[in-house]
Design a protein around this nucleic acid. Structure first.
Lengths: 212, 212
DNA sequence: AAATTATGCGAGCTTTAACTCGCATCTACT
DNA sequence: AGTAGATGCGAGTTAAAGCTCGCATAATTT
């Protein structure tokens, strides 16, 4: 009777055969779609199972409860974001600060462009659930990557605490993109420019510039 | 049978006597507290009524449904934010850009500092519900105020579309603050400085500055 | 092929929470 | 004081949604 099932947030068990692995994937995909389409208010396990085309019993065989399913969604998103950012920074070795920032902006846009409702829902659940321990490694990877980028261009950058700068960059990019709710693909280019502008401004602003 | 009650988001009727006005206030206050403490997952009308110390029937006498209650919360927050920003900009007449931006940063912090969960919940519901028509006037007021500020300092500002700049400023400030989840009052000063830095950077950044 | 293990199913139990309704009480007006 | 309308109440109705459990089927092992 330790931590049997009540508030567990990790999957109940790992799928061992192929078919079950596919099923878990189908569930996660369906969950993403349901959340995007109906928000938290319309997100329930019965609907997810139905959309995934599996029975409700099967869903609960792998996820001990609804929150565990949401946690998995969150982890997936984080993993994808990490990979994209790390690759981007790695490629930035031979590029200018401006170019790398532009690339980062594009990533942020890509990751939020999926759906604004989905992003807001994930955001909310990240705060509601005790996921700090699970999210910390992802955050660390992202911040580490951005720190690396910053370290390459210290001459141009005015922020002295790289860790803080990295986190702020991430947040600024995230929000500007989120605010551009209506996914007009035509506007993507212009949005990207604005995010880049904001990040460059933040990174390179020096008080001396503004006389007062 | 037009739009009787099913999806109405405005209050059912206005309180006409003092006691009912107080009760509506108590309900709204309780709703705020419940949302902050239990997030969307634990936000229900029965609990709100209980915390407010009124009966569930009374709640439904003034709010046709749960969404209408949430909409009211959202409107209240917006109204408060508008008032603060407008006053801040008005006072900025005789101040520098930097000083005014600092003051705006403080407002953003104040408004989100209440509770991160509450803010995320409100954010989510703003997107889920069809509130565009209701929110537009508030947005317009805020953007108008920031445009006014920008207009006073065109010489220092590099962004050419004031409306876009205004909106971006709002979003940047909002996020940086939101990200600083843990409300450490001691860190408030430092946070304020960062938000200011970000806004000034965004507003005054010029491509020429970065050689490449 | 028999046995064992893993997987899949969905009817249905149980709890939660949105919302109603008829009656009691209060306030205001004459 | 009397009356009418406004306000307040909360037990109860209803539907939704979280989750279980016993059984059926498929894969794997020996």
């Amino acid at each position: 009777m330790t931590s049997t099932s009540a508030h567990r947030l990790s999957p109940r068990k790992a799928p061992k055969q192929d078919r079950s692995a596919f099923m878990v994937e189908a569930i996660i995909e369906a969950a993403t779609r349901v959340l995007a389409a109906h928000a938290l208010a319309g997100f329930n396990t019965n609907r997810v199972a139905e959309v995934a085309g599996v029975s409700i019993g099967s869903l609960y065989q792998y996820f001990p409860n609804k929150d565990a399913l949401i946690s998995t969604l969150i982890a997936r998103e984080q993993e994808k974001l990490c990979i994209d950012i790390e690759r981007c920074v790695q490629r930035g070795i031979e590029k200018s600060l401006l170019e790398t920032v532009k690339a980062l902006a594009r990533i942020g846009i890509k990751h939020q462009n999926v759906d604004a409702l989905f992003a807001a829902a994930i955001d909310h659940e990240e705060r509601r659930l005790p996921l700090d321990a699970m999210l910390a490694p992802y955050q660390a990877r992202i911040i580490c990557a951005i720190e690396t980028m910053i370290a390459r261009h210290t001459a141009e950058i005015s922020i002295c605490v790289p860790k803080t700068a990295a986190r702020d960059c991430l947040m600024i990019a995230k929000t500007l993109v989120e605010s551009e709710v209506i996914a007009q693909p035509s506007a993507r280019r212009e949005l990207s420019a604005r995010v880049t502008h904001a990040l460059m401004g933040y990174l390179t602003y020096r008080k001396a510039q503004v006389h007062v």
